[in-house]
């Protein structure tokens, strides 16, 4: 109260001076530079998602702008306050943007992780699919290898069979050649035998008749009414024995014949005895009895007339028929 009482005149004077000033000076205007700062601040505050991110900076910016908006005549002070307001508004903006960017990073991280996961999943699928393809390829290759091996085996077997067939053919050809050689040898041998036979037949004075080879043993072998062989006949009969030894498959039929002199029964007996005598000789030479057949024909089969000595001599004879086989004795 004391203060008020003492300073009352001063206060009155001050009030008066203020009124004077207000009357004669133009009212100080709001600094123009702050208008931009205010607009920027309003924009930031109006931005719903940014305003909440930098509340402290915005409050400080708001205070600075209000301070700068106060009308003053001090131009330097006004410029200074406008500068401060401008910087604080810009700082608030930058901080809000920084915070906003950091907030968005969470979403970006999620998006990138999702993309990465998709990519990995995709890669894994691809890898699996690749592996599956590779497995299929491997299986196919294995099948092909098996098939190739089988085919090779079959070819090998076919080649083996062909080789074996060729071998058989070769053997068959060999056999055929051998057989041909053998048959040729046989043929040669047969020819040789035939030639030998012909030679011996010639030596025996044999004649080929419809009954076979017939060797006629003339009466030179026997004396009249005798059945014993003459000693001179042995060389002739020796040829026959040799022939029979050379051809053991052949047999002989020995027939005795006589002339018509004397009793017919006697002649028959004589011819039989003469045949037996030749047989005896052959048996003595080692010819088997089974190969020899004898028959006495008597005077029934004359080869000449009995009315002269020459004819009777021809009729007194022995005939040896050489048969092809032992069994063909008749």
């Amino acid at each position: 109260m004391n203060y008020l009482k003492r300073s009352a005149p001063t206060a009155v004077a001050a009030a008066m001076s203020l009124m004077l000033l207000g009357a004669c000076a133009s009212k100080p205007a709001t600094p123009e530079g702050v208008i931009n700062a205010r607009q920027q601040l309003n924009k930031l505050q109006a931005s719903a998602d940014l305003a909440v991110l930098a509340p402290v900076a915005i409050r400080q910016a708001d205070a600075a702008v209000q301070e700068a908006e106060k009308p003053t005549k001090d131009q330097a002070l006004s410029d200074h306050l406008v500068f401060i307001a401008d910087r604080k508004v810009n700082i608030a903006w930058a901080q809000a943007q920084d915070k906003h960017a950091q907030d968005q990073r969470k979403l970006l991280t999620d998006a990138r992780d999702a993309a990465r996961l998709d990519s990995r999943t995709r890669e894994a699928d691809l890898a699996r699919s690749d592996a599956s393809v590779a497995r299929n390829d491997a299986e196919r290759a294995r099948d092909e290898a098996v098939a190739a091996r089988t085919a090779a085996e079959q070819e090998r077997m076919a080649a083996e069979q062909a080789r074996s067939g060729a071998e058989q053919d070769r053997l068959a050809a060999e056999q055929a050649r051998n057989a041909a050689a053998l048959s040729q040898q046989e043929a040669e041998s047969a020819n040789a035998k035939a030639a030998a036979l012909q030679a011996q037949i010639a030596a025996l004075n044999a004649k080929t008749t419809e009954r076979g080879l017939v060797v006629t043993l003339g009466d030179v072998l026997f004396d009249t009414a005798q059945s014993n062989l003459k000693a001179s006949s042995s060389s002739h009969l020796a040829n026959l024995a040799a022939f029979l030894k050379s051809y053991p498959e052949r047999g002989v039929i020995i027939e005795g014949h006589s002339d018509s002199v004397g009793d017919e029964d006697y002649n028959f007996g004589l011819s039989q005895r003469r045949a037996d005598s030749v047989q005896g000789y052959l048996l003595g030479q080692g010819i088997a009895a089974s190969r020899i057949t004898t028959a006495g024909k008597g005077e029934s089969l004359p080869v000449a007339g009995n009315d002269n000595a020459s004819g009777r001599q021809q009729n007194r004879r022995g005939e040896v028929i050489i048969t092809d086989a032992v069994t063909a004795s008749n």
């Binding site: 910087r87 604080k88 700082i91 901080q95 943007q97 950091q102 968005q104 990073r105 970006l108 990138r112």
Partner: peptide, 28 residues
């Protein structure tokens, strides 16, 4: 001095925002 301080603070804030945006761009 006050203005210098505010310039420095603005530099810091703008650098922070720019860096944050750059990181975001990289991630995008």
């Amino acid at each position: 001095a006050q203005q210098s301080k505010l310039d420095a603070e603005l530099a810091l804030a703008r650098a922070g925002a720019a860096e944050a945006l750059a990181v975001n761009d990289e991630m995008k």
